[in-house]
């Protein structure tokens, strides 16, 4: 059986908010390394991979591998009943029909209990190779979100160019064009505001902004976001959590 308790329900709420517009139904795979999820969007352009490690939970107990097939809209409905700082316990039997969620507020001794019906989801798992990227850029997640939103007002795609001096996001649309450049800067006092570029070689790629705007819904998970780019491989966008991550992979546009 599975029994996993999060100190803060907000963690799961944010994870679900981050992926629910990309993926409708998916398996939460529970095993002795924690709870993992891997799913593609309907059009097979993007892939999300999530891992909440056992450290994220206290206690964490999972005797055998369990796949919890969940409709994310349903999960979100139930999670709306939880306060951000409620304790959240997930429980399931070994071959479960339902996932049991208990929200406990320490302050007023309120205990809320919900069951969500599970579904059988036949999901393909893709092997994601370890990649040495041409460029890895760490920047404030709010800044990335703002850039994607602003450029999406002009165009449906963005070109991202990473060089030693900085990272440039640019687009061209019917009404005109736009570009935002972040210079590499190391903010010692507020490290989360830094833009750090690790460069093997300069790289430029074009991506659909619709997906990037969607990924930015994970911004509340982390103050920083890491973009990893290489020619002709999917862009990796990673939001790190205290004990885990949400990673998005986006196939590049080709033939530009």
């Amino acid at each position: 059986m599975l029994e996993a308790r999060l100190e803060q329900a907000a963690v799961l709420k944010k994870v679900v908010d981050a992926i629910k517009d990309l993926v409708q139904d998916c398996n939460f795979d529970c095993n002795d390394s924690g709870i993992q999820l891997q799913a593609m969007d309907n059009s097979h352009v993007a892939l999300v991979a999530m891992h909440l490690k056992t450290d994220a939970f206290s206690p964490y107990r999972c005797d055998r591998n369990i796949a919890l097939g969940i409709n994310l809209a349903s999960l979100q409905k139930v999670l709306r009943a939880a306060q951000n700082d409620d304790l959240l316990t997930l429980k399931a039997e070994d071959a479960p029909d339902v996932l049991n969620l208990v929200f406990e507020s320490a302050e007023n001794d309120r205990i809320a209990e919900y069951d969500i019906k599970l579904m059988d989801i036949d999901q393909e798992h893709l092997g994601i190779p370890d990649t040495e990227y041409a460029a890895t850029v760490t920047m404030p997640s709010s800044e990335f979100q703002r850039i994607c939103r602003d450029l999406n007002a002009l165009s449906e795609s963005v070109s991202i160019e990473a060089a030693k001096e900085g990272i440039k996001f640019s687009c061209q649309g019917d009404i005109g064009s736009g570009a935002v450049t972040l210079r590499q800067n190391n903010n010692v006092e507020k490290p989360d505001l830094s833009t750090i570029i690790e460069l093997n070689e300069p790289v430029g790629l074009t991506f659909s902004l619709k997906y990037l705007v969607n990924f930015c819904k994970a911004s509340s998970l982390s103050n920083t976001v890491k973009l990893s780019l290489s020619a002709e491989v999917p862009l990796l966008i990673e939001y790190k959590m205290e004990s885990g991550y949400v990673r998005f992979y986006l196939a590049p546009k080709i033939g530009d």
Partner: peptide, 14 residues
């Protein structure tokens, strides 16, 4: 511009 790539052409099925 450009044609959208498919993620499955980059990652192999397990």
């Amino acid at each position: 511009g450009g044609q959208q790539g498919n993620i499955m052409s980059f990652f192999q099925k397990k």
